[in-house]
């Protein structure tokens, strides 16, 4: 697939338009703030509001130069406890462990839902309800509680990440387990396969594509969970801790840099799922490539979050 994607051109054009619009927007947003700062006599290395718009300490929109400087300050040294790489790695670890934990719990619930109507009737409403509870509210309690039993540091954050990530996995896998058509299920019966065999040979393989679709949604959810947990609980490392800290210190440029970095982190983590999917299920790719896409029914290749 060395052919240049037809999307590349338009994507670049859109990116250029956005970039070109950024400068006027930035001046528009910052000049009033700069004027105010000049009026109050703040110590700024500039004379006019126009000049100051790119040098404000807390700009409404940071100038590209400020962003670049902030980026350089926050990226290096790579292993500094106050730099993004180390903190991003901690958050990524929490997210991935949370996702794996969520997969475990999600699988358990999915099997319960598919195997037993009684289970579904008694628990499914609360599984759904659990998602309406703002995780940020229970996070502090959970962390203090787990701390009583010596569970500290990044593990509570992974658990909180798992709490919001297990739901899409449970629902997705349940769908996948139910997906084999009745014909195949009947066939298994005629072969005298017992329940376990049906699961092992038919239902589990059928649920794998669903699993990965769910993983993509769940990965973003887990990342949000990890960041929220870091913001709202005891944390000394992580993207969320950096956000909270710089919000307290009112360092707007740093907040922007961290925001952009966390976006990149989210994109990378979802890409990780995509990559794993291709590694684990090479036949899926073959199938997609073999199916010609009808021109009218354009299918976006990714499942939306």
């Amino acid at each position: 697939m060395t052919r240049i994607s037809p999307q590349l051109g338009p994507m670049l054009v859109v990116a250029l338009i956005v970039l070109a619009l950024y400068w006027p927007l930035m001046y528009l947003a910052n000049i009033p703030a700069a004027q105010r700062a000049l009026d109050t006599g703040a110590a700024l290395p500039c004379k006019t509001a126009f000049e100051c718009a790119t040098q404000l300490r807390s700009p409404v929109l940071p100038s590209p130069q400020q962003l670049w400087n902030g980026f350089r300050n926050l990226m290096f040294p790579l292993n500094s406890p106050n730099a993004i790489p180390l903190n991003a790695a901690v958050t990524a670890l929490e997210t991935v462990v949370g996702l794996l934990l969520a997969a475990l719990v999600g699988f358990f619930f999915a099997i319960g839902i598919v195997a037993s109507r009684a289970f579904e009737r008694s628990l499914l409403p609360w599984i759904v309800a659990s998602q309406t509870i703002p995780v940020i509210a229970i996070a502090p309690m959970l962390v203090v509680l787990l701390g009583q039993y010596g569970v500290q540091g990044w593990i509570p954050k992974a658990i909180i990440a798992a709490y919001i990530a297990f739901f899409p996995i449970a629902i997705g896998v349940a769908k996948g387990l139910k997906s084999p058509d009745p014909l195949s299920l009947d066939l298994m019966k005629t072969y005298n396969a017992n329940n376990w065999q049906t699961y092992l040979m038919l239902r589990f393989p059928a649920s794998i594509p669903y699993l990965f679709t769910a993983f993509k949604v769940a990965m973003t959810a887990a990342l949000i969970g990890a960041i929220v947990a870091e913001i709202s609980t005891i944390s000394f490392q992580g993207i969320g801790k950096m956000l909270a800290e710089n919000s307290r210190a009112s360092d707007v440029v740093a907040m922007w840099v961290i925001m952009l970095s966390s976006a990149v982190l989210g994109i990378l983590l979802v890409a990780l799922v995509n990559w794993t999917e291709r590694l684990v299920t090479p036949w899926q790719r073959a199938k997609v490539a073999a199916t010609p896409m009808p021109k009218q029914a354009r299918v976006s290749k990714q499942e939306g979050g």
Binding site: S58, V60, I267
Partner: peptide, 18 residues
């Protein structure tokens, strides 16, 4: 598609400030 995998919570402090 890419943006829907961004943790939106990270926007919160910036937007409140803005």
């Amino acid at each position: 598609t890419v943006f829907s995998s961004i943790p939106i919570v990270a926007l919160a402090p910036v937007l409140v400030k803005m």
